[in-house]
Design a binder for these strands. Structure first.
Lengths: 246, 246
DNA sequence: GCCGCGCTCATGTCTACACATATGGGCGAG
DNA sequence: CTCGCCCATATGTGTAGACATGAGCGCGGC
């Protein structure tokens, strides 16, 4: 019977749970099962892995709790749309944020070039030397006044489409959020004084306090993008709500 | 048999799961079961609620996933110490952080008074007017040099013990993390220029950029504490790692 | 042709049982 | 008295089956 499935303990020290879960997670995170895809029915998975329905059920319940899957009675279980923002510390989509405040959002691309990652710049740590990147510098405006300058690198190895996107009207952050699923991110937040160039771009005096948000976003082990956003200290706050659990 | 348990659907539209879970969560969050408390064995809960062990097991597994409970074989299941840091954006325990960097942590209490919340100060929003609070001002040092000043309010209605704690050696943040379970928090991060007093406390020039972290922590609907930490911009970064799920 | 009833099927919840596994504590040997 | 082995026990994992629920869909009546 299904005993045969249990007589194969040689290689894997993992439990059945974990293997099934890892399998499903892998298919979702790798993109093999895209958002909206209906995953196999519990019956099918149960046959496929040779286990009881409770076992499959438990795994899927876990994925639901993790926010990867949505279940609908009678219809099946579906891979969920990537949420625009994590429930914990949102990856800010500046356009939305400004709009939510009732101000007019503006965007301007300052420069754009394709080049090869050199490795010298610490910003490029995590991107393989020799890898192609898009390098952008752009400005975010609120009611016509600049409030943030953004320097960004996008790894072409992970997002080849980025090479042919015209970022002169679309901010790279918004574009990436809508096009590329990510699995992890790292924020570094600091305060620093505006340099000469930054002061000019942000229309503040040199030395004015600015909030600096550096963000690296990953998919699996690959760095997707690095962004450094410098905000006028007098015009921007970061807010995060969260609870111990989810 | 246990059917009698199922023939009582009158008042509650909730499932057995949810009721048990709510029960246990309530006991933990209300403080009835303090951190370290051994919750009843699965056998006992199973008898208490008249259900199968799987059901209890599922509930407890959920609480483990939520980070409220820790399980130890043979020993039982225990209410977890409030985690030093949430997995998502840690509530920084400055002493630990400095120690982790290999620097010597120092702390100094600048002032302490008991008073009544006035409501005028925006810092006190969320605390009922007329409520007693402990008001602290203290300094955090790294290798003997100041790197952060902290202003803090603690609501005595929620944490009456705070009135009799001597904060001259223990930082309020560390004390609260170890003594009071919280259910939600809100961070506001901004950059601003050091004022005269702050410049003096932090040993920087007036106008130097500082990272300002305001934090409000809640238990159920009550504000537990408000903290405003001002960091030297040249000495401190906030780092947050996270993924779409938890 | 349109509407609604009812069947069907996938998930939701729960039970009763079974065996694996690790560990705390007791007991016996040295 | 101390150390180490062994066992009782609580959790970890999985199975097989049962009934409840609710939404999609087709069929039949109007």
């Amino acid at each position: 019977m299904t005993v045969s499935a249990k007589t194969v303990p040689p290689a894997e020290p993992t439990t059945l749970h974990q293997r099934i879960r890892a399998d499903l997670e892998g298919k979702i995170l790798s993109g093999e099962w895209k958002p909206g895809h209906r995953i196999p029915f519990e019956h099918e998975l149960m046959a496929q892995y040779g286990c009881a329905r409770m076992t499959v059920n438990k795994v899927i319940a876990g994925l639901v709790a993790a926010g990867l899957i949505e279940r609908r009675r009678r219809a099946g279980s579906f891979v969920i749309q990537p949420r625009i923002q994590s429930a914990v510390l949102e990856i800010p989509d500046l356009a939305n944020e400004i709009a939510a405040r009732g101000e007019a959002y503006g965007y301007r691309l300052l420069s754009r070039r394709l080049r090869v990652a050199g490795g010298a710049d610490p910003a490029e740590s995590g991107m393989a030397t020799g890898e192609g990147v898009v390098e952008l510098r752009c400005l975010h405006l609120s009611n016509g006044r600049p409030f943030a300058v953004e320097d960004r690198l996008i790894a072409l190895a992970v997002v080849p489409e980025a090479a042919s996107v015209d970022f002169s009207r679309t901010a790279p952050g918004s574009w990436l959020l809508g096009h590329v699923p990510w699995t992890a991110a790292e924020h570094r937040i600091s305060a620093l004084a505006a340099g000469a160039r930054e002061a000019r771009d942000l229309d503040v005096t040199k030395g004015a306090p600015c909030l600096c948000l550096e963000r690296r976003t990953f998919r699996a082990e690959q760095t997707i993008t690095y962004a450094r956003q410098l905000f006028r200290g007098d015009a921007y706050n970061l807010v995060a709500h969260f609870s111990p659990k989810g």
